[in-house]
């Protein structure tokens, strides 16, 4: 029973990690490529970490929760990285499949060289 749960978690995690990178390699502009690693990869690694927590909790007969720390950390940092990358890409005016919004006064222009 436990074996099946672990197998499902590990397989789901590995498949999502793979799909995240597949999106990174396959899609056509930076802004669409950003979606795969931010969501799919993060959930994939989250699944693997939960599998690890279950595995060590059962094996060592004590609760092993420090994997939760990495999971939380990844789920907090992934959107922050994505936001900063998107902001940098808009600042650098990367080519986009969608019409890009007008530049904002927030982005400084003194470093455009």
């Amino acid at each position: 029973m436990l074996d099946i749960l672990l197998s499902i978690l590990i397989l789901t995690g590995a498949i999502f990690t793979f799909i995240g990178s597949l999106g990174l390699a396959r899609l056509r502009d930076f802004y669409t490529r950003l979606h795969g690693p931010t969501k799919a990869t993060t959930l994939g690694v989250g699944c693997l970490l939960i599998a690890s927590a279950v595995f060590f909790s059962v094996r060592d007969e004590g609760v092993s929760l420090h994997e939760v720390l990495v999971t939380l950390f990844l789920f907090i940092t992934a959107p922050v990285s994505a936001h900063l990358l998107a902001k940098a890409a808009l600042h650098l005016k990367l080519k986009s499949l969608a019409p890009t919004p007008l530049p904002d006064s927030d982005t400084p222009s003194n470093s455009s060289d």
Binding site: H35, A78, V80, A82, H83, A86, P101, D104, D106
Partner: peptide, 28 residues
């Protein structure tokens, strides 16, 4: 809100305007 948008279906937050009045979101 921006972090939630980035993790939920189809959207990534891309830029907050300087006056914090609008958020630009990229959708897939």
């Amino acid at each position: 809100l921006a972090n939630t948008i980035s993790l939920t279906p189809g959207t990534v937050s891309a830029r907050l305007s300087a006056d914090k009045q609008t958020l630009i979101v990229h959708t897939l």
